[in-house]
Amino acid sequence: MIEVITPGIQTTIQDRGRTKFRAIGVGFSGAMDAFSSAIANHLVMNDEDAAVLEITYGNASFRFHSDTYIALTGADTSATLDAKSIPCWWSFPVKAGQVLRLKMSSEGLRTYLAVAGGFNAPEVMGSKSTDLKTQIGGLSGRPLRKGDELSIPAYKGPQCPSFGLSKSIQPMHKPVNGECVVRFIVGAEWTYLTDDSQQMVVSSPWQVSNETNRLGARLEGVPLSLKAPLELMSHGIVPGCIQLPPSGQPVIQLQDANTCGGYPKIGVVIASDMRLLAQIKPGNTVKFEMCSVEDALEIAKQERKKLSKIFHNIDMMRKTFSHQK
């Protein structure tokens, strides 16, 4: 069992999310930065989709009441296990009684904590992910609170070495100098934007507002305008959808996106770049780059290769370090 001493501003249990229920109004949920959560899981020999903790902004601490094997990935929070400092993108054995502390994340927003075997939570509609809107999944469909007791599988596993990814093979996952560039495919109402506004989308930096969460990122910049007002009927949307409300300030739907929307759509951020949006903070800037469907599919293949290569590296290192013991 793991006891929550300090939950941080929003910590939830997430796996790869819920599929197949959008038609009844229940969205995906799931880890915002699925690339980082997959690596955390692989570091502790879990299936890449196992349930992890998604910790926002760091500032969280946990006491372990049983021995296990854990990994931290995503935003670096200068974590410590008791007094010992432990690196991000690293896995290490933990003994009952030890306390893991995460400081505030300096760069990046979301940190993933995986435990061997994955966090125990009931499967609700095919997933353990916390859906904050529907109030299902994870721990009673809510963020963690002080004093919560998180169930984890008993660790039977082999004695595991402490090892992790060196800087050179850690994935690029955080904004560089507070700026992140994401690629998008133009959407249905792109041509309804004025020529100036189309230009603005791809040429200006968009500041991430304070009203940004798992549902969506609100962006601030020179307001965009349509050639004429447009009334749309409700239609299905997806995470990554860049909508344009009447204010002219775009909103990017994220993992907890509504299943339906009615605002005009500028475009949709490609699946491979969603993990970058998971790590932006209010005050950071987003730049948009146009992308073709064909390029997006090719980029997705490359991402998968990149992840497989990291998995392979982890497997090699585990072998090496296990033999050295």
Binding site: A188, G236, I237, C241, V268, A271, A300
Partner: peptide, 22 residues
């Protein structure tokens, strides 16, 4: 049907663009 890509893995088909009410 008015057809538009919704990212690389979804397509929106709209039959009611000309209608005032569904």
């Amino acid at each position: 049907l008015i057809i538009s890509m919704m990212g690389e893995a979804a397509i929106l088909f709209d039959a009611g663009m000309e209608l005032d009410a569904p």
